[in-house]
Simulated scan of single mutants.
Amino acid sequence: MKQPRTFTHIDTWVFDLDNTLYPHHVNLWQQVDLRITEFVCNWLNVTPEDARKIQKDYYQRFGTTMRGMMTLHGVHADDYLAYVHRIDHSPLEPNPELGAAITKLPGRKLILTNGSVDHVDAVLARLGLGDHFDAVFDIIAANFEPKPARQTYEKFLSNHAVDPAHAAMFEDLARNLVVPHDLGMTTVLVVPDGTQEVVREDWELEGRDAAHVDHVTDDLAGFLAGLSGPK
């Protein structure tokens, strides 16, 4: 069996945002999910039930519901992002343990997200991690082409001069680690800790045994602290 990639050579640490830098059970994304349903319902003038089906169909087909709404219905990204990210961030609590673990990692720390910079800023502020990252590559920087599209990762790597062979990617969706692994990145899947209820689709929780997943953790802060500098 092929051995998973290690962290001895890593000088760039890349993190997804939602359900990665904060626990799945906070279910913050559930708020966004409901806002997306409302947006689709209002824009297309369909029932909430039909909006839900359309939302999930576009999410699967296009990577994000937004991309489907832009492609098929002429939605403007700014309008969409402003609406769906108008949520209550108060369930998020400061995480000094995670902050300390990130600080000790050698090299750059970057965020690669299908969300917007405004959403990133709001989340990091609540977590107390606002000054822990060197840059954010959001859906706008990706020209609204979401992960897991290969061109999005390639644009990210190019924009931030990242050598994938010396980078690690942390994600909560296994499908978003396929391309990073193919490009040479060390991949880490962040999963729920199993002690509290999470609101996720079944397919979103799959993939921990996939060949493109080098490591799996249900405790990101503990995992990073355990590296204590790459080994």
Rank of each mutant, 00 (worst) to 15 (best):
N27F: 07
D118P: 02
F137W: 11
K155Y: 02
T37S: 10
E97C: 07
L220R: 09
L34Y: 09
T113R: 13
H166P: 01
Q196K: 15
D88Y: 04
V84Q: 05
N176K: 04
P94M: 03
F39A: 10
G99P: 07
R208T: 10
H212D: 08
D57N: 13
I111P: 06
F156S: 03
G63Q: 04
A82S: 14
P146R: 08
D138N: 11
A211M: 03
H181V: 01
I36F: 12
T113Q: 09
A167K: 00
T217K: 12
L227R: 14
M169W: 01
P180M: 06
V136R: 14
Q55D: 03
D202V: 04
F62T: 04
F7S: 01
V40P: 08
R67D: 11
D172F: 05
V188C: 10
P164F: 09
D131T: 15
R61Y: 09
S228C: 08
H160G: 02
A221V: 12
I139S: 06
L205G: 06
D163A: 15
F133C: 04
F223E: 04
P146I: 15
D134L: 01
L44D: 08
N114S: 14
A101M: 03
L81C: 07
D78T: 14
P96F: 07
I139Y: 02
T37E: 05
R126L: 10
H73S: 02
H181K: 14
G184I: 10
D134K: 00
P164Q: 01
N45E: 15
L112T: 00
L177V: 08
D78F: 03
G115I: 02
